[in-house]
Design a protein around this nucleic acid. Structure first.
Lengths: 211, 211
DNA sequence: ACCTGATTAAAACAAACGTTTGAATAATTT
DNA sequence: AAATTATTCAAACGTTTGTTTTAATCAGGT
């Protein structure tokens, strides 16, 4: 390969532009220009624009889901060892923490998180269908473990509460340092660790709320 | 006017298509075809595609915000009458209930709610900038009243918790009867009134969560 | 019936889109 | 060193985009 990382440069540029401007509003010309590669190289290396989106999501979602699955295994093991239902905070943390901590690994990861958050917000978008395909059954396992963790909450009610929780989570995934509405006396910069705890406090309280 | 409702027919078609396929993915040809009007009539009546989006949002958001403002007035009046801080559930209800009940008025309103929910999810999208312009200072008033309602929660923490709450709310606004992920033994159809109470239970518990 | 302004209609505009082509260049293999 | 494969490049493909133009059609006032 003359330019040894053409594919990676395309993936990086696409990741950023898809996250900032959405899939539809991003042209292949904008991607290849930012990547410093030829226009035709996207179709050469990936086949199509849709296949490029698939590759962008797969590159980071596959290891992320592997990590989440590991953590859920661990939560399950601890629950069985103590003959107790799994801890709802631990279940939710297994899903939330690897995702939000990924943002700090590099700049591209932050774009990826925004992109996935965007996918979760558009049920019929191109991002969503590709995202769901790659999520496989992990979402269902997540739901079932939450049901086990909160046996006193009816299944139907918990479904909606998890819907609300995913709304909060995905909203946080989409939000970057530039909030469109910042009230007086409020700063937007917080370290991610404490933000995760804030989200867990909020979410667990909501999931366990009295009926 | 030969066809007395060309503008309304365009607004209805645009409302639906913008909500389902997003602003960028919807062409003027698709809109005018669905509306049964000539392609050029959009630019004749509205000036541009952007101005059309503005009109679509304005048509329903203006009366909705007037109603929300009324309800916040009422909550404020009751708080002053009893010399107590405003009820957090009432504050939040003033924001949530008129919006979600609007869905049932007609099919177009449901599309509008989806469209606004989408706007809230894309901080840099065309929908968001137009939406914010029309929201004016209502969001800030909403935040300040929530601070008054929960004086024990630090302002900074409440900012993030309201961020989570708006995430839940907007996620519910976007979700229609077709959920992409429906676990076993769970139905997706619930009457809106009880869904509002579910959301309020969840949100108030999260906002008031122990720190 | 005639005129005036508002609206609709079909057609064309330039620009941007994703994709494909075929030749040129680089890398690897024989 | 020659042959072969992989990659890059500039150019063009046919569509589709938002917008504009010009003529036709409609309404209501005099």
């Amino acid at each position: 390969m003359s330019q040894p990382d053409t594919k990676q440069r395309i993936l990086n540029a696409a990741e950023e532009l898809f996250a900032v401007h959405s899939f539809h509003a991003t042209s292949l010309r904008a991607i290849t220009q930012q990547a410093g590669v030829n226009l035709a190289s996207v179709n050469y290396h990936f086949g199509s624009k849709d296949a490029l989106l698939d590759a962008v999501i797969k590159r980071r979602l596959e290891p992320l889901n592997a990590r989440r699955s590991e953590l859920l295994d661990e939560v399950e093991r601890m629950a069985e060892a103590s003959s107790q239902p799994p801890e709802i905070r631990a279940v939710w943390r297994a899903f939330v923490e690897p995702t939000l901590l990924l943002r700090k690994t590099d700049a591209g990861a932050e774009y990826f998180i925004t992109l996935v958050g965007r996918a979760l917000a558009e049920p019929h978008g191109a991002e969503m269908s590709i995202f769901l395909k790659q999520m496989g059954s992990l979402m269902f396992r997540f739901f079932e473990m939450s049901c086990s963790a909160l046996p006193s909450i009816p299944r139907q009610l918990l479904f909606w509460r998890m819907h609300f929780a995913i709304g909060s989570f995905s909203h946080l995934m989409r939000s970057n340092e530039q909030s469109p509405l910042l009230p007086e006396g409020v700063s937007n910069t917080v370290d991610m660790e404490s933000l995760i705890e804030m989200l867990l406090d909020y979410t667990v309280a909501g999931l366990e709320a009295p009926q």
